[in-house]
Write a protein that binds this DNA or RNA. Structure first.
Lengths: 212, 212
DNA sequence: TGGCTTTCATAGTGATTGCTATGTATCTTG
DNA sequence: CAAGATACATAGCAATCACTATGAAAGCCA
């Protein structure tokens, strides 16, 4: 018996003729490339290789499809939390995150920049809720980072006068800013250089911080 | 005789019943708030208080209106160049620019964030040229910054191993990133804190760089 | 095979997109 | 006061928007 099919199928009619996960990934790439509101359902169906009714029965509507695509893009939030909290220091967490961003934003098989940064960077009032959800996801990452900085302060790894919000905010700002530069054409080396420069801002890690 | 009118009018028919500059500013605010493609002509005419035919005779089309609004937003490029090149050091130029951004992005009378950062952050292929123009304007600022950093290196203000592109790129990235955070709801104090943290990345200015 | 269920492709829904044709109102010039 | 020129308001253009009604196709179970 096929496990994957048996789960979702309930009264077994005609099976889907396309792979849902593959189609979702194509949709993610389309949103990544051209944004949430500015990617039409027509663009999506073309990219996914399915018709509009198939899209709507499989994913609900454009909004739900985007949210699911964003979840696929971001990965499991618990993984991100683990990655930040499990790092040796907040500096390591920041370096890992920024380096990963610089590489992810300049992949050769994916669109430039960051889906979370660009897809809902602006939009009409009709999509305010989607923009808010994406903003919330960003905020979650920032809170984890800030908590990790505070832990470093409490453990004496960072000096007590360190401003946690300023430091976590800087990492977030650079992460989002790298996306803009990547979209503008900056290559991976340039982005990694910026990451190195940004990490030089880290207190008590100034000597160790590489400058690319 | 009224000078301003005499310049543009050629064969003098019925005069415009609205102030062109005021209408342009309203359009700028609309684009600022909801982006280039995601602000409809209907939204624009409503914000500007004029009808569609008036908009098209006065500004050409939506694309030209946006480009003119972007020019109004950014101000004279020569002023920006002067501001950067006229600063005592590259650090001062960066601090001035970042501080001004943090304040401009959190104005109470204007939309959050930066028009240049958000309005064309993503879009369909149909607006690729507009996105490219805005990207070009960003690139111009970055080049000025980079040249200012190089001058500091040559004059011994910055250490010779300084990476100019990394430093100018960092300022650009933080500038763009601040816009995202401002749109997400970060207040002025938070943004200025991030600016302070970013300036701590500046070589040979680490001690002087404020962190609040 | 004959129901039953679900997905498929075709085609089209009303609403909105950027933009404009048309005719009238309002100005300057002679 | 005409003639000429321009901007005005109304109304509507074709195209596209997100989305769906409809009926045939394709699977399972009896």
């Amino acid at each position: 018996m096929k496990v994957a099919e048996a789960q979702t199928r309930r009264k077994m009619g005609r099976p889907m003729s396309f792979d849902r996960q593959t189609a979702l990934q194509k949709a993610m790439l389309a949103f990544w490339r051209t944004g949430y509101e500015t990617t039409s359902v027509n663009d999506l169906t073309a990219a996914m290789g399915i018709t509009a009714p198939s899209l709507y029965t499989a994913f609900g509507d454009k909004r739900q499809l985007f949210l699911e695509a964003a979840r696929l893009y971001l990965g499991d939030p618990a993984d991100i939390a683990r990655e930040i909290e499990g790092a040796p220091t907040a500096f390591d967490a920041a370096r890992t995150m920024l380096t990963a961003a610089a590489q992810a934003y300049t992949g050769e098989l994916t669109p430039r920049g960051c889906l979370m940064a660009s897809a809902t960077a602006s939009g009409s009032a009709a999509s305010a809720d989607v923009q808010a959800i994406v903003a919330g996801l960003r905020g979650e990452i920032e809170r984890h980072l800030r908590a990790r900085v505070i832990r470093d302060i409490n453990e004496g790894v960072l000096p007590p006068q360190t401003d946690p919000a300023a430091l976590s905010g800087l990492v977030m700002a650079v992460t989002q800013g790298l996306s803009v530069l990547a979209r503008d054409g900056a290559d991976r080396v340039a982005l990694l250089g910026i990451v190195g420069a940004a990490l030089a801002a880290w207190p008590a890690n100034r000597i160790e911080g590489t400058t690319a």
